[in-house]
Write a protein that binds this DNA or RNA. Sequence first.
DNA 1: TTACTTGTTTACAAATATACGAACTAATGA
DNA 2: TCATTAGTTCGTATATTTGTAAACAAGTAA
Lengths: 107, 107
Amino acid sequence: MKDKSLFKMHADVCKALAHSIRIEIIDILKDKEKSFGELLKITGVPKSNLSQHLSVMNQKGILIHRKEGLRVYHKLSSPKVYNAFYMMREVLKERILKQKELIKNIK
Amino acid sequence: MKDKSLFKMHADVCKALAHSIRIEIIDILKDKEKSFGELLKITGVPKSNLSQHLSVMNQKGILIHRKEGLRVYHKLSSPKVYNAFYMMREVLKERILKQKELIKNIK
DNA sequence: TTACTTGTTTACAAATATACGAACTAATGA
DNA sequence: TCATTAGTTCGTATATTTGTAAACAAGTAA
């Protein structure tokens, strides 16, 4: 049988984006790094929850962080993460446009 | 508070890719349509399970299908789906390369 | 040392997602 | 009509993910 471990790893990267809080985090970090505390304020997510989401994103390789004193700064691990994020949004846009067409035809 | 429904929809599209079987399906459909039966043979996934995964992908707007006689043919809803798939794989590649570097430095 | 700030980890409940056999439906042909 | 093929849906068991409070850890500063 064919080896499917590549599909598994590939899906793991996709999973790192597959949550609305994580999408919001990528949106915030798209062009600049932010500390944990800043992300906390912007998102309004409880800190333990936010920490877990950031941890998942780090493990899956889509974020990196550095510690400076008490603060931890997070950013995208590569511009490719934003490209992937962006293409997903394009797919969403296309889907919404198609739905608009459908509604127009119903009227 | 800020409206987060866009993040939710965006994450839903990502979720459609976030499973190894669904990644495999996109890989198979990247450049041609296939019938359910062909997908069944290629993937080896039980038919009820395959049908459910295809259903999820249809609902999330990343696949479309047409029926012809007894057969159902599936394909990507847009080339953008493959672009998104591809960028995810690029992120994975980058991560693997970084891990290789780390191992090299350990030696 | 003590207290404070910033963030992580743990424990566990609740919610979602996945897997798969069995039953079911739709189209075709004998 | 009856059987066959192709695929979907249902019931339900299992697995994975998520959310939250509470405990914990690490760095800074008095």
